[in-house]
């Protein structure tokens, strides 16, 4: 039995109207949320959700599970923070610089990693991310354990002062929404179809003349780039880039978000990120060791809840609709 990532191809297309309703509700929540909840927390949440969407692009598209996505998230975060703080880059320039870094790292890691698939792919990405972690630990500009702190947010296009939390929040929300639409677009495009076909039957796609490796690499770099956007945005919005951003716990956290929400569902990563980030925040307050809880949830999902929350939901909606049709 393969990974349960059928969500995108089967369920969501049938429940098209449902998706629009969910998206409309999502946009309303996105606009209204900062009036109810502390905006800085929401910014962190949105950055993690975007990161999860980026990760999901890779696994939902090509079925490749990366264990090293923190390298792109953290790599982007470090460069964006350094550029904004030390070189006076504006907000847009810093985000672009962070994203470019992630693209570069993604290209290097992608060329190496796509030579294998499945388990070995996961192990290779993990090892490559560890190499990036050691770089972040050793390079002088990252300040090792301290990280880069007090990063200025700057102005959006020189017009809007981002020191205001509400302004910063809506910029994050806008970028997140664009990122979400991008993932959606990629999946529903012919490019996304080819990726799924490669996942299902790679030898056949090769014999049909598709440059399989190039497709995989483009998807990998795209996913890395989006992770870089998320990391850069996080560094600027929260004003810091630290070793946590590049270390394995972040790579594992994003895997958990996507698993929890539902592998290969569009909304899944968002739902997973909301739950995981809120849980982190809550647990840190009451002193229960977070990694243990995360580990328990990991095991629980894999043993009994492999479709994830959104995946499970779509599964039942689908069954319900099919019964109606008969």
């Amino acid at each position: 039995m393969a990974l349960d990532i059928s969500g995108i191809s089967a369920s969501e297309s049938k429940s098209g109207s449902l998706e629009w309703v969910a998206m409309a509700v999502g946009v309303i929540i996105l606009i209204g949320a900062p009036f109810v909840i502390y905006p800085v927390f929401l910014m962190e949440l949105l950055c993690m959700a975007l990161f999860a969407c980026a990760f999901n692009l890779l696994i939902g598209g090509g079925g490749l599970l990366s264990f090293g996505h923190a390298a792109f998230f953290g790599g982007g975060a470090y460069i964006a923070a350094e550029m904004a703080k030390m070189y006076g880059f504006t907000f847009e320039e810093a985000i672009l610089a962070g994203t470019a870094t992630a693209v570069f790292l993604g290209l290097v890691a992608g060329v190496v990693a796509i030579r294998r698939s499945g388990l070995i792919f996961a192990m290779v990405t993990l090892a490559l991310a560890q190499a990036v972690y050691f770089l972040a630990l050793r390079l002088p500009f990252t300040h090792s354990e301290d990280g880069i702190q007090a990063v200025p947010r700057g102005w959006l296009f020189g017009l809007v002062d981002l020191k205001d939390n509400m302004a910063m929040y809506y910029v994050c929300a806008g970028i997140f929404f664009l990122g979400y639409l991008l993932v959606r677009r990629v999946w529903k495009s012919p490019f996304g179809q080819v990726l799924r076909a490669i996942k299902d039957n790679q030898p056949r796609m090769i014999s049909l003349g598709f440059p399989v490796d190039r497709y995989k690499l483009i998807n990998f770099v795209l996913s890395a780039a989006l992770a870089g956007v998320a990391g850069s945005l996080k560094a600027i919005a929260l004003g810091l880039a630290t070793l946590t951003d590049v270390d394995f716990s972040t790579s594992a956290a994003v895997v958990l978000m996507v698993l929890l929400g539902g592998l290969g569902t569009l909304m899944g990563p968002v739902v997973g990120a909301i739950i995981t980030v809120s849980m982190d925040e809550y647990l840190a307050g009451i002193g229960i060791p977070v990694p243990v809880v995360i580990g328990v949830i990991f095991c629980f999902i894999i043993l009994v809840f492999r479709r994830g929350i959104v995946g499970e939901f779509l599964y039942y909606v689908n069954r319900f609709q099919n019964r109606g049709a008969r």
Partner: peptide, 12 residues
């Protein structure tokens, strides 16, 4: 993923 979860529990 499952053994990774177990790893996190034990180490945590």
């Amino acid at each position: 993923l499952l053994t990774l979860g177990l790893f996190q529990i034990i180490q945590g």
